[in-house]
Design a protein around this nucleic acid. Structure first.
Lengths: 254, 254
DNA sequence: CCAGTGAAGTTGTATATACAGGCTAGACCA
DNA sequence: TGGTCTAGCCTGTATATACAACTTCACTGG
């Protein structure tokens, strides 16, 4: 016997089902907690939990005193996940390796100083690493780290421990900001990634904070022809396998 | 008098505070529900709600029978939001306009047929639109739509209503898959976006499902020098303003 | 006719209670 | 010594109850 789903989950499924089939459309009213108490024979707390979770998942919006309404799909954000490159490669079951190109002490200048909120000339460490997936270069990591945050940085072996693993070990990193751009990389990056002259590069720019101050600033360059960020939005319970489709999408070229 | 926060929120804040200051490190044990009942004078259900929400927010992991533990920051996904271009432009307070380049009936071929799960020769509509922000081209939308899904497609005026608004009006779209790539666009796209020959393009490829079948497939090309996807991860309660910093980051050029 | 009042319905929160089920350490027995 | 079993702690779920605050709408008195 398969264990039955929790009752709050049954209530959630019921509502999502209505939305999926179109029986409930955006801005339509969703049954109130008390109506669910009667129609689904649950306690009000259980109905409340179901609707509250659907709210945080973006399916519905609730207004105290008025009711619960189906939220508009258009206003729902589509999300892309940005993983640590080492974890991502391991997740694919591939072999990850790193080569350290540069690991030096520098003084912050210009834009780096601005990004890290420090004066020109402040001590920083500069890392230039190349990450490989099954031997093929997949990312150039160009990272600057506040020297006062991680004084032992030059002694680390970043071919064994990735910078992000090292940094989170020094102190918890709470906040991050990132941007994704496309551009033609300079010659050095092209060489490290074995890219041709007319190939574009996908760049993730990430700044990370610890305890309210920005401590590291990284530019992650990927070869445009071999790397993409992917995301998938689906309501819970939609168990359709998408993996084969993703492969098809991979093969598309514009 | 400022209305005090709900008690479950106070409990959440207390735990997040401990994690932020480093008093609790990844894999450390978090006070159990019963301990919180005593130390914070709340009911067990309130402590349960606090820890349950922290679980869904990725702060902690819970194991029935063992306890609650701080989750590892490294395994937490960083997220990028991908908005509808019209909403995004309006959000910036800018003026959005659209030009329809092509709006025709076609027969699905090759990769498009594969992406939409239909046989070669199936009726589809093809849209080629250019979106402008304050008069400057910011996106080329190259979209294919299953004809059987939206038969009225050729009668629509897509300079007034965006395709995504129209499509969600036809039927709810429940599922989406997307990928972000960088590449050098072809001549037509370059011309529409007024891009120079050596400029890269950021491409969002998106497929959307309605009722279990893929109904539309779009390639959204953006000029690499004028567009980026951004994301920001911060624990709730971190109210630091990041807007000025984002501007600094905008000005960085690799 | 209009303004004010209040009833009814809604969400939001908080608690006490109960039972089921997972995990672990230590007691206990062979 | 080694295996087994149970007590105790933990999370997960479910309910009944209670009160607060908000919205809408109908009614009522001026």
């Amino acid at each position: 016997m398969i264990p039955s789903k929790p009752r709050y989950q049954q209530v959630k499924d019921f509502i999502v089902e209505q939305i999926s089939t179109g029986a409930l459309r955006p801005s339509d009213r969703v049954p109130s907690e008390n109506q669910l108490v009667v129609s689904m024979s649950v306690s009000r707390m259980t109905a409340n939990r179901a609707l509250r979770e659907l709210t945080s998942e973006g399916y519905v919006e609730r207004v105290a005193g008025r009711g619960t309404f189906v939220s508009d799909y258009r206003s729902r954000s589509h999300l892309l996940e940005v993983h640590n490159i080492a974890d991502e490669i391991e997740l694919r079951g591939h072999q990850h390796s790193t080569r350290v190109v540069r690991q030096s002490r520098q003084q912050a200048r210009g834009e780096i100083a601005k990004a890290l909120h420090v004066k020109q000339g402040t001590d920083i460490f500069h890392l230039l690493l190349v990450h490989y997936e099954n031997g093929k270069p997949i990312q150039v990591e160009d990272r600057h780290i506040l020297a006062s945050f991680a004084p032992e940085c030059l002694q680390q072996d970043f071919e064994q421990v990735t910078p992000s693993a090292y940094l989170t070990g020094v102190a918890p990193l709470q906040e991050a900001e990132q941007a994704v751009r496309a551009s033609i990389p300079n010659r050095a990056v092209r060489r490290h990634l074995q890219m041709s002259d007319d190939e574009a590069s996908l760049i993730v720019i990430r700044r990370t904070w610890s305890d309210g101050i920005p401590v590291t600033f990284a530019r992650l360059h990927h070869p445009g022809s071999r790397y993409e960020l992917t995301g998938h939005y689906a309501p819970p319970g939609t168990s359709r396998t998408m993996s084969t489709d993703v492969v098809q999408l991979e093969n598309l070229r514009q």
